[in-house]
């Protein structure tokens, strides 16, 4: 289970003055879902393009089962299948035609390519649309076809770039289920800027920002780094600027507290937050702070990102 299938070693990529990826080293283990997280523009797509062999790094190397992918054996490259974020289909080919075509491009025999294509169409629920031109499919169907195109050659590693982006809730659930079923047979690398999505489906998570890898661990361990327990967010009636005073007052209760959102929100991390809520609110009252709304939630990867970068993911 702990075999390394995909490894990045000291990857660097620059575009002019912009450093897209800086000294990225990580290992993807066999099986399960590897979440590759980061805000838009963090360098995720550049990184996965290098991982798939589409882009040559300025420095470093990518190994698939210990073999270099860049400029290497096409068979090594074929071990990776990639589903791009953008829908990439041949609009004037039918679903079946394009699956068979790309299968043959990967070197499958026409009969095997057809057999796999038919099975994949079934898997992504497009069998009834098999002879329909891609341009006539709905957006959700096109996205499923996009996914099937990455799988027709039966790769060992499947890289999915923001697979849930732009999906309606129903299709999102379908795709998520498909990813889960896929992860039982293959290694899935999933890039996303949606922390909840990553938390739900990933076995291990790497967080990247400004082209640098910040952390890599299981979601549970990463969330524990932020603090055990839950996060309480208390929206104040009036914004405050004395974050330091608040932090010191709550430290006496053995909880971590701070101001966010321009002093509008007091954020507290605590074990058994529900049981301790009267105590926490009482502390605010004793400090003369009028309280508006209160919400309690478990720690999330978003909290991990905020702790690591000092800002929210979408800021």
């Amino acid at each position: 289970m702990n075999n390394v299938v995909l490894e990045a070693k000291g990857l660097n990529k620059r575009y002019g003055n912009l450093t897209a990826v800086q000294d990225l080293s990580m290992q993807v283990l066999e099986g399960g879902v590897f979440g590759f997280l980061g805000p838009n523009g963090a360098g995720k797509t550049t990184s996965i393009h290098m991982l798939c062999g589409l882009l040559s790094p300025d420095a470093g190397e990518v190994l698939v089962r210990g073999k270099r992918i860049a400029n290497g054996d096409p068979a090594v490259r074929a071990r990776v299948g990639m589903c791009p974020q953008k829908i990439v289909v041949w609009e004037r080919l039918t679903c079946l035609e394009q699956l068979v075509f790309i299968g043959e491009m990967y070197g499958l025999s026409p009969s095997l390519a057809r057999q796999r294509s038919e099975q994949l169409l079934k898997d992504v629920d497009l069998t009834e649309r098999r002879n329909q031109l891609a341009k006539t499919l709905s957006g959700g169907m096109q996205r499923r076809l996009n996914l099937a195109l990455a799988l027709v050659h039966d790769p060992e590693i499947v890289v999915l770039d923001e697979p849930e982006a732009g999906l309606d809730p129903q299709t999102r659930i379908q795709v998520r289920e498909f990813i889960r079923s896929l992860a039982r047979r293959k290694t899935v690398v999933l890039t996303t800027h949606d922390m909840e999505e990553a938390d739900r489906v990933s076995d291990r998570v790497a967080i990247i920002d400004h082209g640098r890898l910040l952390v890599l661990d299981t979601p549970e361990r990463l969330k524990r780094q932020v603090g055990e327990g839950d996060t309480v967010e208390i929206r104040l009636v009036e914004a405050r600027a004395d974050g330091q005073v608040l932090a010191e007052s709550f430290a006496a209760l053995n909880v971590e507290a701070g101001l966010e959102d321009g002093g509008q929100i007091v954020k507290i991390r605590a074990l058994n937050a529900v049981g301790r809520l009267p105590e926490l609110l009482g502390k605010l009252e004793s400090l003369g702070v009028p309280v508006g709304e209160v919400s309690i939630r478990p720690n999330s990867l978003e909290d991990v990102f905020i702790q690591l970068t000092g800002r929210r993911l979408r800021e």
Partner: peptide
């Protein structure tokens, strides 16, 4: 522009093919 060439490149069949 549509990115389908990228699919061919992933398959090891690029612009030349």
């Amino acid at each position: 522009v549509n990115g389908t060439l990228q699919r061919l490149r992933l398959a090891g069949k690029g612009a030349g093919n």
